[in-house]
Amino acid sequence: MINTEYFTLGHISLLLGFILIIVGFWGILTQKNIVKIILAFSIADAGINILIVSLGYVIGKTAPIIDGSVVQKAGIDVSDSIVDPVPQALVLTSIVIGFGVTALMLAYAMKLFTAKKTLHINKFNDLKW
């Protein structure tokens, strides 16, 4: 039997994140079409994002936004009732960076295609040894 203690939202997401990263890496290493390689990077990115958020997630705590759902009392540290905000900040950055990198890769893909009329990665090996 699976230990139910680990059978939580956070752990499942964590697992999902890892699987997506691995699938993404697998795609990066096996696919020959450059666009598909870039897609695989996107999958891995999504996996990492899920990973980061799930690591910061604690059951029963709300989003790190100070609004009505967080009971505000003077002198009480609100950090007890919200999830860790830092990972979420990281994810935000990571998403933006991931998008930028993906865009750059796609720009490259376009240039590569214009140069050789193909997207097969094996064809772009004029620099070697």
């Binding site: 990115d45 994002n49 899920i50 958020v53 997630y57 790190p64 979420q88």
Partner: peptide, 19 residues
């Protein structure tokens, strides 16, 4: 959606919009 479930609404929005 998963981010939303994990109490990260702003991340969820960004991911939906950008990702």
């Amino acid at each position: 959606i998963l981010f939303l479930l994990m109490s990260a609404p702003d991340v969820a929005m960004t991911e939906a919009a950008i990702g």
